[in-house]
Amino acid sequence: MFTVLDMAQPDKLEEAFEILAKRKNNTILGGCAFLKMSKKRIGTGIDLSRLNLDYIREDNGFIAIGAMATLRDLETNALSRDAFGGILSQSVRNIIGVQFRNGVTVGASVYSRYGFSDLLTALLVLDTEVELYNGGRMPLQDFLQKPYEKDILVQLRIEKSQRSAAFSSFRKSASDFAVLNVAVSSLDHQWTIAVGARPGRAVIAETASRALSQGHLSAEELEAAAKIAADELSFGTNTRGTAGYRKALCQVLVKRGIMEVLQCKSN
């Protein structure tokens, strides 16, 4: 059973970080849906709800998403819903249910870097920056590769552009965790393919993305790129699927993702 000894609701980020740094078991509280299932013994739980971080807004050519915005906000907010073919909204809309998404925060979802995360996969094919209180701004990909350090995720910043994108998540049943999820995007003939729930954390299929960007998008090249993605990434086995099946799915979903992006471009 998870326990909390104390609780803080700081008014300033500095204060929040101070408390966080003070003790090893002091922890930032997100929506608590996942935290609740853990056996963590938390010293001071730090609630960021007084810091006005629940925004999704335009900020100098970026979509800025505050750490305390909920998945449901991301799903329904006009700005996030309309950008990039709606993949931000799509990537979260099948996570459990509305009530769950009204509680779970974007900040906690990204900071936790869960392997099964649908959102991370979608964010990876966009020009996403993570802003940490202490660590500053960095591309999402760098953040994901960074070792865990105690910090506060303040906001995400996604560069606005004409980027086309598609997201798909393969689930055995509608509200299950994904067996595999795939996001594909394209801007100025530069393609990005990301694959998550492998079941490891989402990564970009670099070689496949490059191959696709350099070619002419013929049917054969699409197939080839999808195969490269399946070959270059590593897959694992868990209760939802074997590595071999995930690899096969990867090829299919990547191919479909590319085709969907091409289709929305031609529309």
Partner: peptide
């Protein structure tokens, strides 16, 4: 946090009161 039985509203929004 996944069955919905404990649903109440917080500031008018449906949430899972168990979580």
């Amino acid at each position: 946090s996944c069955c919905g039985l404990c649903t109440v509203w917080m500031d008018g929004k449906p949430v899972l009161s168990c979580s």
